[in-house]
Amino acid sequence: MVSAVFHSPLEAVDTASAPKSAAAPASVHKAPEPAPRRPINLARFWMRVLPPLAGFGLLVLVWELIAMRSGGGFPAPYETWLQAVKVFSDPFYSNGPNDQGVGWNVLSSLQRVALGFGLAALVGIPAGFAIGRFEFLARMFNPLISLLRPVSPLAWLPIGLLVFKGANPAAIWTIFICSIWPMIINTAVGVQRVPSDYMNVARVLNLSEWKILTKILFPAVLPYMLTGVRLAVGTAWLVIVAAEMLTGGVGIGFWVWDEWNNLNVANIIIAIFVIGIVGLILEFALIKIATAFTFEEVKS
């Protein structure tokens, strides 16, 4: 026979209300020791810092040697630095349409790039989706793209001047025509590389073309599309400088040409650095955006 032992509720209360000193001594918990600090990897740090510094140092050295051999015709680095301090002390002055600060010239060029690039994106990205999605359109437009894409963007500038009757719309047209090809090609390639299993599932589910575009194609093609956008922006920023040299007006390209007419070589060198820095900022920003929307397997 199994005997059951019953405890009175009063015993439970007495046990709970008993002083802690009567209970069994609790184990003492020590505070966790702080993790040891990882030593600074000086070798890795210097490998990240020294090569860029060495590259810039080599550039300055070659620059100084060229200035010394030119006999004063080519500005030295220190002379250019003093002129840059003067230029950037008031970058937004305006003394008329042909005499404005470097800030206004950069903003004018960026405005033209934004307009031409925006129009190219409105046309090129949907065209890329259509060409990649439908084989008939791909066979129809591939020969035209292969024929027109290698043409220098500046070759389109006279056509823009003839059609639009103005320098500013002609420059925007040149940006448009040079920006549209990378977006069309990269978007179309992205659509064509969508796994066939995705499209088979879409057919089984009898999805509409709009749902195929928004639910399947767009998420899969986005990394390719952003790569085309990044390439297009880089090309547009390269072309606008040359286009503005030919069309005139306010802009960083016109500023370079105007300073050459004034034989101010120091300002030309400053403009070269400004063009490079702005292009680097645009490239870095678009790389960050593309990385944020790229899947891990595409990154690797």
Rank of each mutant, 00 (worst) to 15 (best):
E64H: 14
E64P: 00
E64S: 15
L65C: 08
L65K: 14
L65F: 11
A67D: 07
A67C: 07
M68V: 11
R69T: 12
S70F: 08
S70A: 15
G72W: 07
G72R: 06
G73S: 14
G73T: 13
G73W: 11
F74P: 09
F74E: 00
F74H: 04
A76N: 11
A76S: 15
P77E: 01
P77K: 12
P77A: 08
Y78D: 09
Y78R: 11
E79Q: 15
E79V: 12
T80H: 05
T80I: 06
W81M: 14
Q83F: 07
V87Q: 12
V87S: 09
V87A: 08
V87C: 00
F88K: 02
F88H: 01
S89Y: 02
P91M: 01
P91Y: 01
P91D: 09
F92A: 03
S94L: 05
N95C: 00
N95T: 08
G96I: 11
P97F: 12
N98K: 10
N98Y: 12
Q100N: 04
G101V: 02
G101C: 05
G101N: 04
G101K: 00
W104L: 11
W104I: 06
N105S: 08
N105V: 05
V106W: 04
L107C: 06
S108Q: 08
L110M: 13
L110F: 13
L110I: 11
Q111C: 03
V113R: 04
V113Y: 00
V113T: 11
A114L: 14
A114S: 15
A114M: 10
L115N: 00
L115T: 02
L115M: 14
F117C: 03
G118S: 11
L119C: 08
L119Y: 03
L119H: 02
A120K: 09
A121Q: 10
L122G: 09
L122T: 02
L122S: 07
V123W: 01
I125S: 04
I125Y: 08
P126F: 12
A127S: 15
A127G: 01
A127R: 02
G128P: 03
G128Y: 10
G128L: 10
F129Y: 15
G132H: 03
G132Y: 07
R133T: 13
R133P: 07
F134D: 05
F134R: 13
E135H: 12
A138I: 01
F141R: 05
F141M: 10
F141T: 04
N142I: 05
L144M: 11
I145L: 13
I145V: 13
I145R: 01
I145H: 03
S146L: 14
S146E: 15
L147H: 07
L148M: 15
R149E: 07
R149Q: 13
P150G: 03
P150S: 09
P150K: 10
S152K: 02
P153N: 09
L154R: 00
A155I: 14
A155V: 15
A155E: 04
P158H: 06
P158T: 06
